[in-house]
């Protein structure tokens, strides 16, 4: 087949004109974005169902998310969307030095977002505020023992699961349910204890002693959620990240699932940001070689669309997870 006559190098052989190729690519990208929306739609649906069934968990647990960092991240992403749009404009106008500059700014925004996300995630890890199976909340006070504690508790957890014979963590819940009435007091006590200087000591003393006290008739003895507080379910954590945790009510049962949802949604979003970083780097590389101009800027345009979608998803995630009242 003859490629030679009048066909620009970027025009693939099966397209007749550059416009046909451009509109095809754009339609393809929109369809891809539709699949992304539907995939996240599934997650939002799971979120809605769980929140509809257990609103108290969201009311309680959202205060452990750092609204300030979340808000900063929102601004960072919005700015990177602006620079991305600017990059598309630069490509369309053939501003060959502005284009890579804008792409670099977009990348800076993307890395900034991931950096702040890293700070948030590591604080969650430090506090054991993890997805359901790994959820072991504890006070900030004892960084040194974090790993040790984690391992012990983890081992005990396994023990419990085996003893119980059935669902892991099931025992915890029975325990929690039994203690709900009393947990207010326990909670207060825990709070006081944590507020005092003894927090650290107590945390070290507890895991062996307190757990046995549970009076439940079920096999709860080895229940291991038990962080520094005295009761496994009534634990109250002070919100230390942003310094102003508004209300420390008793921890609702199954709070841990909030963190499952948090990590799933922000994690999947984060993976998309990483994907965006990779393709923007590719764009940067190509643009430095002068690949894009007014006649051919399809990849910049398409990556721009993708980047706006990633941004948009965060715009939904931020209020749904951080700004619950």
């Amino acid at each position: 087949m003859s490629h030679d006559h009048d066909h620009p190098s970027y025009l693939q052989h099966h397209f007749d004109t550059p416009e046909q190729q451009f509109t095809s690519s754009k339609l393809g990208m929109w369809l891809f974005l539709a699949t992304e929306v539907l995939m996240f739609g599934g997650l939002f649906c799971a979120y809605s169902v769980y929140r509809g069934n257990h609103p108290e968990i969201f009311m309680y647990a959202h205060q452990f998310l750092d609204t300030k960092l979340g808000a900063i991240n929102t601004v960072v992403l919005l700015c990177s969307s602006l620079t991305m749009a600017w990059a598309v404009r630069a490509a369309q106008l053939g501003q060959k030095r502005l284009l890579p500059f804008m792409l670099i700014l977009t990348l800076a925004g993307a890395f900034g977002f991931m950096g702040i996300k890293y700070i948030e995630y590591s604080s969650k890890f430090d506090h054991g505020l993890l997805w359901a199976r790994a959820y072991e909340p504890h006070e900030e006070g004892h960084h040194g023992d974090d790993h040790g504690d984690g391992h012990e508790a983890g081992a005990a957890d396994h023990g419990a699961a085996h003893d119980g014979g059935d669902d892991h963590g099931d025992a915890d819940h029975n325990g929690a349910a039994d203690h709900n009435g009393a947990s207010d007091h326990n909670g207060d006590a825990a709070h006081e204890a944590a507020a005092g200087d003894h927090g650290g000591e107590q945390a070290e003393a507890l895991p062996d002693g307190v757990l046995e006290i549970l009076p439940s008739g079920l096999k709860v003895e080895k229940s291991t959620i038990a962080p520094p507080g005295s009761a496994p379910s009534g634990t109250v954590l002070t919100v230390s990240d942003d310094g102003h945790g508004e209300h420390h009510g008793p921890e609702p049962e199954k709070t841990k699932v909030f963190f499952s949802i948090y990590f799933l949604m922000t994690g999947l979003h984060g993976i998309h940001v990483l994907g965006g970083i990779v393709v923007i780097f590719w764009l940067l590389f190509k643009s430095l070689g002068g690949a894009f101009g007014p006649e051919y800027y399809t990849p910049v345009d398409l990556v721009g669309l993708y980047w706006h979608l990633v941004d948009l998803i965060w715009i939904f995630l931020f209020p749904l997870l951080y700004l619950i009242h």
Partner: peptide
Amino acid sequence: AITLLLLIAERAMGIGIFDPALGGD
């Protein structure tokens, strides 16, 4: 895709979305 991802996470990480013991459905 997201359903299967949730199922994988349920098995690998124990997220609880589908686990009635954790309030899941």
